[in-house]
């Protein structure tokens, strides 16, 4: 059973095709989407999307937040920014962390501050997990 998967960033369509499963970094925890998943919508946190197209063939991409939409027709991820994991380096991640730190400092409302500091923590966690 294959599920149709599309990964789009504002600049372009990054992936479109039938895949076996996709691991999505949802805001409440990672989740794997397989064929026949119930209709579902989630916010993404910064993390890694792992696509397995066929047994032994997989791709991993870093996304900086976004949305996942599981519909009967397939899974669509609207990523804020997505790049292949091989191209991700510490500098890029550090820049994102710095941005998030600035957002925390600039935030004027409690809500905004909480959102920004959450994002910063998620990015730090991710950096530790990837060991780069």
């Amino acid at each position: 059973m294959a599920i149709h998967f599309e990964l789009v960033s504002p600049e372009k369509l990054l992936f479109s095709g039938d895949v076996e499963s996709v691991v999505v970094p949802g805001s409440e925890g990672e989740l794997t989407v397989l064929a026949g998943h119930a209709p579902f919508m989630s916010i993404l946190r910064p993390g890694v999307v792992a696509i397995s197209e066929a047994p032994g063939k997989s791709q991993r991409l870093f996304v900086r937040g976004g949305f996942a939409d599981v519909a009967p027709s397939g899974l669509t991820i609207l990523a804020e920014h997505a790049i292949p994991l091989d191209e991700l380096d510490a500098g890029l991640l550090d820049a994102d962390i710095r941005d998030a730190e600035e957002d925390v400092a600039d935030a004027t409302t409690d809500d905004a501050r909480r959102a920004a500091s959450e994002k910063r923590d998620q990015l730090r966690e991710l950096k530790a997990a990837l060991k780069i």
Binding site: E6, V8, S9, P10, E11, K12, L13, M41, F67, D69, T76, L78
Partner: peptide, 13 residues
């Protein structure tokens, strides 16, 4: 043209 898919999907969602 390559920005179009995102805007379309966004609208659908």
């Amino acid at each position: 043209e390559s920005a179009r898919p995102y805007a379309e999907r966004m609208e659908k969602v």
